[in-house]
Design a binder for these strands. Structure first.
Length: 670
RNA sequence: GCCACCUUAGCUCAGUGGUAGAGCAACGGUUUCGUAAACCGUAGGUCCCGGGUUCGAAUCCCGGAGGUGGCUCCA
């Protein structure tokens, strides 16, 4: 312990910079609290005030300490695990021998926290050796802290306020009075060290801000997020519904199905221009396929298996009259009798298609798309609305190509993704390259080539990217695209993954230029990811106000009185004939009520037809909150048609895939 | 799967051991109205399911299902 070491507090005090609201210091760009000795040779020391963004984690971490102090006062015998600041607030994990915390406990804990804050206890940093720390923690029975102590390197520090201390490296505010605005938000279970084999602890979440106003603003943001939650909007906008007999398996209602089908139609248009072919493949395959692909047994826990009555009979026959059997013997009989699996992925089926006949290098790259429905058994706790379901379709495609072609495919894919995300109004995506994990297939030379190809593909598009070391799949590296929605939440949607495993397992081959047999590589890729998840993300991003080209109803024609009912229906009919999704509301409600009904469903265009408009052959048009005045019906029709096309395709010739333009190149055959 | 909580009319929610309620939606009627909610009436319930305690259970206890927030896992 070096008493002579100077802290930021001393440094700032000497220069008269230690204001009332200073909670820490940036020392050559690194955040320090006022208690920690400055590193030798520190040059630039600036105060961090409460209003500084860097103050937030300090305030939150200190709030976690005060909460833990309050909890241990109210519930003696409670032991501490970890209690960090997070992006949203803070939490502390506890082991409480006498049962769970309740909602009422939170209020009591908050009250005690306020007492500790009011008492204005200074925080203090204590540096000590391992033996001393061990003794102090052992005296309090802090078994998790003791375990953690053995893992950390010196300097070992405690932080104390009042009589309460914690093994902690800081940083912390100067005193408890700096904690002005906090709220405990929820109770949850969490495993010690995040490992499900470890004991379950109780986590209390809270959030804290430098001021009451900021805390209120934060709670308001949460309320806004709740208002645009896709599960709520999905029901209100009549997009989806669920039933307990098909848990986590959405039913798309007519309005939702329009959106779903528009998304797929949009991706199909893209495919037509980008050299993809689409196939339709089986839903259920013989178990042999899943053994070959490696899904059995390694993905078996996520698979639905299919049994026929004959399979059941076979099991019964083989088990009947064989006396008491061990679990393993029964398991073997059952496993042998289960002859089919419902697909959780399209890739093995596509391998069968590739191998269905001799392939030439001239066909490569072969881009095979499939909107097939997938079923994955997901553990109940992970399910969430449309974003984590058990039944879904992806805008899935597999690209069979040579190693040399990978780079160009990556680049083309990134162009594809970029245009698509722009069409939906998302900001730029974060590009992440996930590299070789510890457990992997294939030699290092191959991984070197694969990762270099992915890198080169990204760089060919001049994109900034991050590297997630060791995050790749066991069969190959991948590029992930993360984007942020309107509320700043990040989602991983698109991905492209290189796979050398499946072509090996299925012994895929093509005939190369010199007539020799070569093995292709495979790229798994999706742009929207799962359509279900994408609908969820898009609904939250747009708060349900979908762009006109995707809206289930693009325009509602509203009559003012019964005299215009006939005309409204005729106009709607003409719009529909022109491919516009139009509805007419000619009920006997007042105009205001009809407007409200259409606004609640977020119909983008409202056309009002009263006596005046009827006479002039016009409609009074508004687009959400925007008054567009009176427009002639033909003008309206043109406008609606123009807006029915995704932004990137406005002014482009419509793509037709029923009649290919010109002879299709041989490489597009399947 | 694990921890906690929740489940009452289509939706949002009251109802703490003693006769199941409200608003909106639905349905019928009246109203024909100019930019976010007309008026009157009618109907609607296995209080998630099963078991238990009790003279009596939406309410208390146990088990199950589904959902929610986390943890772990992931498109």
């Amino acid at each position: 312990m070096s008493a002579a070491a100077r802290t930021a507090r001393g440094w700032l005090e000497e220069r008269g910079l230690l204001g009332e609201d200073v909670v820490g210091a940036r020392v050559d760009g690194v955040v320090y609290d006022l208690h920690t000795p400055l590193p030798a040779g520190a040059r630039c020391v600036e105060p961090i005030r409460l209003s500084d963004p860097d103050a937030l984690p300090i305030v939150r971490h200190s709030s976690a300490h005060v909460m833990a102090d309050a909890v241990q006062r109210l519930f003696p015998g409670t032991r501490l695990a970890f209690g960090p600041a997070t992006d949203e607030g803070f939490y502390y994990d506890y082991e409480r021998p006498d049962g769970a915390f309740t909602e009422e406990d939170l209020a009591r804990i908050e009250a005690t926290m306020r007492e500790i804050v009011a008492a204005d206890r200074p925080f203090e940093r204590i540096e000590l050796d391992r033996e001393q720390a061990r003794a102090l923690l052992a005296a309090r029975g802090e078994r998790f802290k003791l375990e953690h102590l053995e893992r950390i390197a010196p300097p070992i520090t405690l932080y104390r306020h009042g009589d309460w201390f914690d093994l902690c490296e800081g940083p912390h505010v100067p005193s408890t009075r700096f904690l002005r605005a906090f709220k405990l938000t929820s109770i949850a279970g969490a495993y010690w060290r995040g490992d499900e084999r470890n004991p379950m602890l109780q986590r209390i979440y809270g959030t804290a801000f430098p001021s009451e106003a900021e805390l209120r603003a934060h709670l308001e943001r949460l309320e806004q997020a709740r208002q645009r939650d896709h599960r709520r909007l999905g029901r209100e906008l009549e997009l989806v519904t669920f039933h307990p007999w098909a848990p986590a398996s959405p039913f798309f209602l007519p309005r939702g199905a329009v959106l779903y089908e528009r998304l797929i139609a949009y991706v199909r248009e893209q495919y037509a221009r980008r050299g993809y072919v689409e196939v339709v493949t089986p839903q259920i395959y013989d178990a042999e396929l899943w053994r070959r692909s490696g899904h059995l047994p390694s993905y078996a826990a996520n698979m639905y298996l299919a049994l026929t009555a004959e399979d059941v009979d076979r099991i019964v026959e083989r088990l009947a009259g064989r006396g008491p059997l061990a679990a393993d013997e029964i398991r073997a009989v059952v496993a042998d009798a289960v002859r089919a699996g419902i697909k959780p992925m399209n890739c093995p089926g596509h391998c069968l298609l590739f191998a269905a006949r001799r392939r030439s290098y001239r066909e490569l790259p072969l881009r095979v798309a499939d909107f097939g429905r997938l079923h994955r058994f997901e553990r109940s706790g992970v399910l969430h609305g449309l974003t984590r379901v058990r039944s879904f379709a992806q805008d899935d495609a597999h690209v069979f190509c040579t190693e040399e072609q990978v780079q160009d495919e990556i680049a083309a894919f990134l162009d594809f993704v970029h245009e698509v995300y722009e069409d939906f109004g998302f900001g730029p995506a974060r590009v992440v390259l996930a590299t070789r994990p510890d457990q992997r297939l294939g030699d290092d030379a191959r991984w070197d080539r694969a990762e270099a190809a992915l890198r080169a593909g990204i760089e060919a598009r001049g994109l900034h990217y991050e590297v997630a070391e060791g995050e790749g799949a066991f069969y190959g590296p991948k590029v992930e695209l993360h984007l942020k929605d309107a509320l700043g939440r990040a989602w991983q949607l698109g991905t492209i993954q290189l796979d050398f495993n499946l072509p090996e397992r299925f012994e895929l081959e093509y005939v190369a230029r010199g007539n020799e047999r070569r093995r292709p590589v495979m790229l798994h890729r999706a742009v929207l990811g799962s359509i279900e998840r994408f609908v969820g993300v898009l609904v939250e991003h747009t708060a349900g106000a979908l762009p006109t080209w995707l809206a289930p109803e693009q325009i509602a024609l509203l009559s003012v009185t019964e005299a215009q009912a006939e005309a409204c229906h005729r106009m709607a009919e003409r719009l529909r004939a022109a491919g516009v999704r139009a509805v007419a509301d000619t009920s006997s409600e007042k105009l205001g009520a009809k407007i409200r009904a259409a606004r609640v469903l977020r119909v983008p265009y409202l056309g009002i037809v009263g006596a005046r408009e009827l006479e002039q052959g016009t409609v009074s048009l508004r687009r959400r909150d925007e008054e567009l005045g009176t427009v002639a019906f033909d003008v309206l029709l043109e406008r609606m048609r123009a807006e029915s096309v995704p932004p990137s395709q406005r002014g482009r010739e419509p793509v037709s895939w029923s009649e290919p333009r010109g002879p299709s190149p041989p490489s597009r055959r399947m």
